[in-house]
Simulated assay, not measured.
Amino acid sequence: MAIVAGALALALAACGGTGGSKATMVKACTDAGEDKAMCSCIADGLEKSLDAKTFNTVAKAMAQGEEKGGEVLDNLPADEQSKIMGAMMSTGMQCAFGGA
Rank of each mutant, 00 (worst) to 15 (best):
A28C: 09
S82H: 08
G70W: 02
M1H: 14
K27T: 10
E71H: 04
N56A: 15
A52C: 10
E66S: 08
M25F: 06
G16Q: 06
G6I: 09
A78D: 09
A14C: 12
S21H: 05
G6L: 11
V4Q: 10
T18P: 13
V58E: 01
M38Y: 15
A87V: 02
D31K: 12
M93T: 12
T24N: 15
D35G: 06
A2Y: 00
V26E: 00
G16Y: 01
A13M: 08
K83F: 12
G20D: 04
D74P: 12
T54H: 05
K83Y: 11
D74V: 08
K36A: 15
T54A: 06
L73C: 05
S49F: 02
C15N: 14
C29S: 07
G33L: 07
G65M: 01
L76F: 01
K68P: 13
L50C: 07
F97M: 06
K83M: 13
A28I: 00
I3V: 14
V72E: 00
D74M: 12
L46Q: 03
L10Q: 08
D51E: 02
G70I: 00
F55D: 01
M89Y: 08
M38D: 15
A9G: 05
A59H: 07
E66I: 08
A14S: 10
I3Y: 11
G99N: 12
C39I: 04
A52Q: 13
C41T: 11
A32I: 00
K22G: 10
G20E: 03
G17H: 12
A28V: 02
V26K: 02
K36L: 14
C41G: 08
P77W: 06
G19T: 15
G65R: 01
C29H: 06
I84K: 06
V58L: 10
C15W: 10
D79T: 12
N56M: 14
K83S: 15
D44K: 01
S21I: 00
K48I: 00
P77I: 07
